[in-house]
Amino acid sequence: MASKKRELFSNLQEFAGPSRKLSLLEVGCGTGTNFKFYPPGCRVTCIDPNPNFEKFLIKSIAENRHLQFERFVVAAGENMHQVADGSVDVVVCTLVLCSVENQEEILREVCRVLRPVSERV
């Protein structure tokens, strides 16, 4: 999967806003296994319903110094009210949509937190 993830995440920087600093939200971050595929300087916010992942995320952030870790939020993807409307450039959720209670609601939340395209140019 590493080569596939490298390929899939290779153009993430293209979605950065006017500041050119990519703001990324990972929903269902788990232990942070995707971190090594994110571009240098990327600002990462993580959401996961399992609070026990935080200790593993701290270790993963220490191993991925090319990232700027913003915060870890304990929440389900269907209710990300702690993340402001239009506040992120990219949302990543791998191996998540198959395990949520309400796929429509999580996708609605993803659309809500994504920065409008008109603000990215």
Rank of each mutant, 00 (worst) to 15 (best):
V96N: 14
L97P: 01
V100S: 03
D85K: 11
V96G: 10
S99F: 13
D85T: 15
I61P: 00
H81P: 02
L97S: 07
A75Y: 04
G86V: 09
H81K: 15
L67E: 02
V73R: 09
L114C: 02
E109R: 00
E63W: 04
V90Q: 08
E78L: 01
G77N: 03
S99C: 15
H81L: 07
V83A: 02
V83I: 15
R65Y: 09
F72T: 07
L67V: 05
E105L: 04
F72Y: 12
C111Y: 08
V83T: 03
R65H: 12
V91S: 02
L114T: 01
I58E: 13
D85N: 15
R112N: 09
N102Q: 04
A84H: 07
H81A: 14
V92N: 11
D89N: 12
I106R: 00
E109D: 00
M80T: 09
C98P: 07
V113M: 04
E109K: 03
N79M: 07
E101H: 11
N79W: 07
E78T: 04
V113E: 10
S60I: 05
G77H: 03
D89F: 05
V100A: 01
V74R: 11
L57V: 08
G86D: 10
T94Q: 15
V74M: 10
Q82Y: 11
E109S: 03
L57H: 05
V100N: 01
I58F: 14
L95V: 15
F69E: 04
C93W: 02
R108T: 01
R71D: 14
M80F: 08
V113I: 02
S87E: 14
V83K: 06
V100D: 01
L114D: 02
V73G: 12
D85W: 08
E70R: 05
N102A: 00
E101Y: 06
E78V: 03
C93I: 05
N102M: 00
V83H: 05
V110L: 02
G86F: 06
L114G: 01
K59S: 12
R112Y: 06
V110S: 03
E78K: 01
V96I: 07
I58S: 14
T94P: 05
E105A: 04
V73A: 10
E63C: 09
A84D: 13
V88I: 07
F69S: 11
S87P: 05
V113F: 09
G86S: 15
V113L: 05
I106F: 01
R71Q: 13
V83F: 00
A76P: 08
V73L: 11
V73P: 04
M80P: 01
R71P: 08
V96F: 07
S60P: 10
C98A: 14
V74E: 06
L107T: 04
K59G: 06
G77P: 07
Q68P: 00
R65C: 09
L57T: 14
G86H: 11
H81R: 12
S60C: 08
S87Y: 09
A75R: 14
L67Q: 06
S99M: 06
V100F: 04
L67T: 02
A76T: 09
V73N: 06
E63A: 08
V88M: 04
E105D: 08
C98S: 15
F72C: 09
L57M: 13
V74K: 14
C93M: 15
C98L: 13
E78W: 00
I106W: 02
M80R: 07
T94Y: 14
V110T: 12
V92P: 03
C111R: 13
V90C: 06
